[in-house]
Each structure stands twice: as C-alpha cells, then as structure tokens.
Design a protein around this nucleic acid. Structure first.
Length: 575
DNA sequence: AACTGCGTACCATTACAGTA
DNA sequence: TACTGTAATGGTACGCAGTT
C-alpha cells in the first residue's frame, strides 16, 4: 500500500501540530491523539468565533458571569466564564483532566440547549450547524488517565499560543459537507479545514480594483501615426512585436498604457497574461485581448502580476474554462477572481522580495546563456574524423510512449521529465539501450547539437532525437562532449543542416564530424580545466533554482497554503 | 463580443526504403 | 524476410487575424 503525508498549513501550524502529537504520545493510539487534538482545537475555535465572529455575537452573553454551570458530578457551581477555552491555561496540571471530563465535555454536549436560553429568536443556520457539530464531537468525549497530566498543561499552552486566532476564525468547520458525513469522519474533516484555512490576508474579489481599458484605435485609418505593436506570450509576458505592421491590417487595437495588464482570453489557460512595463508612444495590442489597469492606490500592479503567475490563478482559469473547443475567459470572470489583499505597504514589501529573487534568476540566466566552452584549450590540436574514435553510433524509432532524456544548456542530463517504458519495450530496443559513459547528441529539432555525458549507471533508453556516441579508448566521453559544445563543432553541425528542409543530423554526418584530438592524458588535463568552470556554472544553476523556490514560497505564504516540503509518497510497486 | 481560421512550430507515430 | 535508419504524416499548441 502506498502512503502519503500531506500538510495543509504553514510551517508554524504544522510545527504546533507535530508538537501536540509528541506531547500526547502517552495518551494512546494515533487516532486517539488526533481526537484529543481536535477536541481542544474545537474549543479554541469556538471561543475565537464567540469573541470575533459577528454571527456568534449573541452567544457572548452565555459566557458572562451571570450564567452559572453546575458540575453534575460534584454539584459545584461555577460561572460560564470558566467554560471558555482560555480558562484552561489557568487550571493546574493536576486539575485539567477532570476539568475537561467533568465540566467542559458535559457542558458542550448540551450546548444547543444552553445556547437557546440566551439567543433571542432563531439561531442562524451557521451557528446552528456549528453547535450540532460541537455536540456530535463532545457527546462521547473522555480524556483517559493515560494522558500524562504533566504534559496536558503543555498541550493546552500549545493550542492556546501557537495556533493563530485569525486562522481559526476563518475556519468553516462544516462547509458543504452533510452532517452525517461529519459525524462519521469528523476528525479528518475538522483537522483538514483548520489547517487548510491558512490565509493571512482578507480575501477580496478583483472587481472593485480593476479598470477596463476600452480605448481602441484603427491604425489603418491613422497612417501618419507610428504604432508600436505589443503581444502577449506565456513565456515572457508582454513583448514588442516588431514584425507585425498594424497599419496594414484592417483590425482595431487597444491603446495600452504603462502598468496595464493585457491578456489573451483564448490562451489565458496557459498563462498568456502580462503586465505591460513598456512606455512607448502609441503602443497598441490586439483588439481581441482584454486590457485593464488596477487601482494602484489599493492594489499594486506588480503584486497582482505575481498572483497571476501563481498556481492559484491557472486553477481558477481552468475552472472557468467551460465548454467548447476553445476557452473564452471574460473580463467578468477576471472580476470575480478572489485574491488575498494585504495592505498596500505589505504588497510593496512582497513585491520587493519577489523582485530580488527575480534579479537573481535573470542574472543567473544571463551567465548560463552566455557561457561557452573556452575554445582556446583546443587550439593547435590536429583534427581527426570522429568515426575513428567511436565504437558505436545509434538511435532508432521512438517506442510507444516515448522516452526522452533531455539535456539542459549546461550539458547536464535532466531526468526530471524522463518518461518510463516497460521492461519489454526496453529489451526490444537493444540498439538504443544506454550504457554508462555514453555521450548523447541531440540530432533533431531546435536543440540539435546539444550534448551530454551519461554519468549514471541507469537502465535507460533514448528516442529517435538522441544519438548515442560510444567512444573507443582513444577518446574520453567527457572530452568528446566538451568538444561537441565548442563553436567549431557547433558550426560544423549547423552547416550540415543548411539546405535540408528538415532540421536533423544523420549518422553518417555525425561520423564525419572533425574533432580536435590529442592523447588521453592531455584530454584528461583539458577536462580538468573545463570542469572547474562547470562547477561554477552548477553553482549558478542552483542559485537560480533556489530563487525560483523562494518566489514560490512567498506566493504560497500569501495564499496561506502549503509551504513545507509537500506530499512525501511511497510509490506502489507496479507488477 | 464571440467565434473561427490560418500559419507556424513541435513532436510522436507511422510509412517506407535500403540492407543483411 | 527481418531489421534499421530516415522521411513523411498527422495531431496538438500557439498567437494572433479575420469574420459574424
């Protein structure tokens, strides 16, 4: 059986829950512990709602001094004030257990009856539902003596101090789930809801913060004006479309201002939305798009832009994308999107954090893009036909399902997107089975010419787009891979592609490539030199990945969702 | 405003031709 | 005939332009 661990909350809440589980270890089985935690949380949630939620307001007087609760066991009378969770931390360790079992649980197991005594008129449905749930939970509650009384005080203090009231207040314990279901699975449902509702900021609909741009022009009728045409892509956001001559079409375009958003309503499901930071004279964009600004005194455009790039937005768009072959996301849909809205200053701070990380990513990308193998280490070496140094060259047709091994720009193999094939298919495709120390070369498509060395001892296979070059003892795999990355070899490869209608290399062409060659020792020396540079590059790659992770974390915090390492899962064996 | 069409790019799969 | 390597094909996505 597979197991999964899913966290629903922020770090702080998760830590609090972990602590609770540990402290309650003597209390019994994991299920019992969860039950105890939930009961304590429920008491705390209820108190928070009584204090802060308007609909629960009328219940406040129930907990005033004037209302008295008689302990059914001892006959001792106490004020209802002492039935609120906040009373528990004041009780001594030794007394907590009996306080819960003899006072709190009996009290809350008849809370509906008690509530009706103070409530004028009918209970609102929300309150009624809450009370039903509380009765369900506390009807059979009993903390056993197994609960170490010394620990119980600490347990109470964790619930009292480490769980934020705001988080609790936003917790809707019932949602749309039927009461019977909750009665059966209340623990699971409650804890999920408590932990899920981690939003730190008020949620607002965008409609009050957006201004639709309806300013259209027809460039063909204003031939004296020089227009700059913008476009939107999902990769780079807003870009300057230098090819399109708007004057030559019969279309009308939107005039775009700086800090306005533009989106393609038919492609927004893939992220075709961007914030325009350009400020050209007469900048325009396709009339088929939605163009809008936001009220910048309340909503920072860069903050909104960051939200558009978070997973939450794509999820929302795909929810709205209903029916038809192609979606059409309307401005109305945009207006009804709900976002967390911090104060304008907090938004600014969040944007500043994100921009810092973006700057790191951009810098790293520049380095990674512009770095190339230092060709001078190969100068003065004689050239030799690659075929003389190879044992084997191969690739073949793609198997069902395909199996790609991608190579990133640094010549490092990236297995993250690797596709799995069955053992049978793998066995059939003998010619493309990969061995350790094979050199890969992309031979088709846009990435033709990229190469990498297979360092890992994996059972793997490659598809038609990747050639395997297996070297003989006159040529080191790493050396070959480095040589293939040099401008000289890249230009040899480029030339081979000229004149053919299709990008791609065949094996004969590969065999005839001319490489600079030297003896094995010198090859090793050259690799050492190049490796020191590669290490630096790897560090830069890591910085980039880390910065991306930080941005994700910032966004996750804003949305109040999972930020700790997600979903640890044991995969089930496939037979 | 909403819908449809077009050119391009990418890529897995299929078809086919050459060879052992 | 079986197997290989290469080319063609067809499906899908994208970014608009154009039509209704």
């Amino acid at each position: 059986m597979g197991r999964s661990t899913v966290h629903y909350a922020d770090n702080k809440t998760n830590n609090a829950l972990k602590k609770l589980h540990n402290k309650l270890r003597p209390a019994g089985t994991p299920a019992q512990r969860v039950e105890y935690i939930i009961e304590l949380l429920l008491l705390k949630i209820f108190e928070t709602k009584i204090k802060q939620d308007d609909e629960f307001k009328p219940l406040r007087k129930l907990f005033s001094k004037d209302n008295i609760w008689k302990n059914p066991k001892t006959g001792v009378e106490e004020t209802n004030e002492n039935r609120l969770f906040s009373y528990l931390p004041t009780v001594s360790n030794e007394q907590i257990l009996s306080e819960l079992n003899d006072n709190f649980f009996p009290f809350y197991s008849s809370i509906q009856h008690i509530a009706r005594q103070v409530f004028e008129g009918n209970l609102p449905q929300k309150v009624q539902d809450q009370l039903v749930l509380i009765e369900e939970v506390f009807n059979n509650s009993n903390f056993t003596n197994n609960v170490n009384t010394g620990n119980l005080g600490e347990v109470i203090s964790i619930v009292a101090n480490d769980i934020e009231e705001l988080r609790l207040l936003k917790t809707d314990l019932l949602g749309d789930v039927p009461i019977d279901f909750i009665a059966e699975h209340k623990e699971i449902y409650v804890i999920k809801e408590v932990l899920k509702s981690g939003a730190k900021y008020p949620m607002v609909k965008l409609k009050d913060y957006l201004i639709l741009n309806e300013h259209k022009v027809k460039p063909s009728q204003n031939s004296d004006v020089n227009y700059e045409v913008l476009g939107v892509s999902n990769e780079v956001g807003i870009f300057l479309n230098e090819k399109l001559q708007a004057e030559e079409t019969n279309q009308s375009y939107f005039v775009v201002a700086k800090n306005e958003f533009c989106c393609n309503p038919y492609r927004i499901n893939v992220g075709s939305i961007g914030l325009n930071t350009n400020d050209y004279d007469n900048q325009i964009i396709s009339g088929a798009y939605i163009v809008f600004a936001c009220k910048e005194d309340e909503l920072n455009p860069k903050y909104l832009d960051a939200l558009f790039k978070s997973k939450g937005f794509l999820g929302y768009v795909n929810d709205k994308a209903n029916g038809g072959v192609r979606i059409n996301f309307k401005f109305e849909d945009m207006k009804s999107w709900e976002i967390p809205l911090p104060s304008i200053n907090e938004q600014k701070a969040i944007v500043a954090q994100i921009e810092k990380q973006k700057a790191i990513i951009e810098g790293a990308e520049k380095v990674l893009k512009n770095w190339g193998i230092d060709e001078t280490v190969f100068t003065n070496l004689p050239f030799s036909e690659l075929d003389k140094h190879l044992l084997f060259v191969s690739s073949c047709a793609t198997p069902l399902g395909g199996s790609n091994v991608y190579i990133d720009a640094n010549g490092v193999l990236d297995f993250s997107d690797a596709v799995l094939i069955s053992k049978e298919v793998h066995a059939k495709m003998k010619r493309t089975q990969v061995k350790k120390s094979d050199v890969f070369l992309n031979i088709t498509g846009a990435s033709t010419g990229r190469s990498a060395v297979m360092y890992e001892d994996l059972e793997a296979n490659v598809n038609q787009h990747v050639a395997i070059l297996r070297t003989n003892k006159t040529l080191l795999p790493e050396y070959l891979s480095s040589v293939l990355d040099t401008p000289n070899l890249q230009s040899q490869i480029d030339k081979l592609q000229i004149g053919s209608s299709r990008q791609g290399l065949n094996f004969d062409q590969i065999r005839k490539l001319k490489i600079p060659i030297t003896d094995i020792d010198s090859q090793r020396q050259i690799i050492l030199e190049l490796n020191s540079q590669l290490q630096i590059l790897n560090g830069i790659s890591k910085m980039k990945v880390d910065a991306e992770k930080k941005i994700n974390k910032i966004l996750a915090d804003v949305w109040g969702i999972e930020t700790v390492e997600p979903v640890a899962m044991e995969a089930e064996e496939v037979g």
